[in-house]
Design a protein around this nucleic acid. Structure first.
Lengths: 217, 217
DNA sequence: TCGTATTTTGACCATATGGTCAACATTTTG
DNA sequence: CAAAATGTTGACCATATGGTCAAAATACGA
């Protein structure tokens, strides 16, 4: 077995990383149950026995992949800044999520699969860490509402909308490509234009209504 | 085997319907690969051998479930009426899709699973029938844009937005319930209020800008 | 270069799963 | 009510799959 605690050897580091990296592709494509250790081994270019030499079980690989991706995937929300301009902050968040959807569709699909199956692994995480993060951001949205920067509604739903619309381009890519033949670059540009213009306009609060040029107070 | 072509007996009708109905729950929860014929048999309250007496294979059951659900799920789009008021039509479509998401979450998850796995079964359908339907509705949206009823953007993205946001409440229900403890009724009411107000405002075309009360010409 | 630690894998095992079949049970029909 | 048709299932089979293990190959420090 790999050393119990000692620092990783060069080969360990390489192989463990390769297994995690390649198995993301496999898990995101077929889900946990639909993925086999043989597939992962083939993707990583080694024998099944060797894969299980580095990770005790298929489940352990899955956990490593989830952990390695979770932070990257959910990080952008952290940066929603209470001090920034509401509409600009939201716009930026949408842009970052869209870019992530384009550059890391596998990560998106991995989570989509996990949640669809009832979040057997990350369920606890959702109720604790993610909930805390979301609560703190909901507070920011509420503040912006009170300041008239954005209109009033139940704040979480804006997060749900941003998540669902942006991740849709990764999770439902097959359907999208069946319905729209534009190249990926145009598709994402159009998506951004659409979401930006509709949301920015649709979210504007009382501060912006009536007198057009009004600013502060 | 069941009669080759002859009309279904009472028992055939009952059992086939029960198998399809119950296996929707199973397939939507675990995906195709994650569902077993034993699970389906248990859910339908009969032996595995009997299930396979009515359906030649697991795949055949899956096809029957997909077929039986597809129409219901995609039907509302058909009703988007070119002659109706743009914003009202869109609003109604959102409402219907949201209601469907609430009342038939299993159907939504079934398709989400199918698409996530690369649409191995309904891929061809997406490229033909669904594409045709979408193209025709995109034409309607384009018309509304030219008439100034809604602002100008790449029309498919509005469909993507409506699909993703409404289905999100079914597909990601576990995550939503981890983040928001409101009862389902409030959740969906809030979702509808939010989507309505943001989208209706965000979609308004030139016809509505400037002079507030202007109506036709 | 030698000896030890690490790495790699083919062969193997136990279990799960899709599917078949012959025997038995029930329903339908004349 | 008896024969034919239909329905039901336990036992069984072949394959797939997660995981183990001992032996062989390789890397590496002294």
């Amino acid at each position: 077995m790999p050393a119990p605690d000692r620092k990783r050897t060069r080969i360990q580091a390489e192989n463990e990383d390769r297994i995690v990296s390649k198995s993301l592709d496999v898990f995101s494509k077929y889900g946990y149950r639909g993925s086999t250790v043989d597939q992962i081994a083939a993707a990583a270019g080694m024998s099944k026995a060797n894969v299980l030499y580095y990770f005790k079980s298929k489940n352990d690989i899955y956990l490593a992949v989830l952990e390695g991706t979770l932070e990257i995937w959910l990080n952008p929300l952290t940066e929603l800044d209470a001090e920034g301009d509401a509409l600009l902050e939201i716009q930026r968040y949408i842009q970052v999520k869209l870019k992530l959807s384009r550059t890391s569709p596998a990560a998106s699909r991995l989570f989509a699969n996990e949640i669809l199956q009832g979040a057997p692994m990350i369920g606890p995480y959702l109720k604790t860490e993610l909930k805390e993060l979301v609560d703190s951001k909901v507070a920011i949205l509420t503040k912006w509402m009170k300041q008239g920067e954005i209109k009033t509604f139940e704040p979480v739903h804006l997060l749900f909308l941003i998540w669902s619309t942006t991740q849709h381009y990764a999770d439902f890519a097959i359907q999208i490509s069946a319905l729209d033949s534009s190249p990926k670059s145009k598709l994402y540009k159009d998506a951004e234009n659409f979401l930006d213009s509709v949301l920015i306009e649709g979210l504007k609060g009382p501060k912006y209504s009536g007198v057009v040029g009004s600013d502060e107070y």
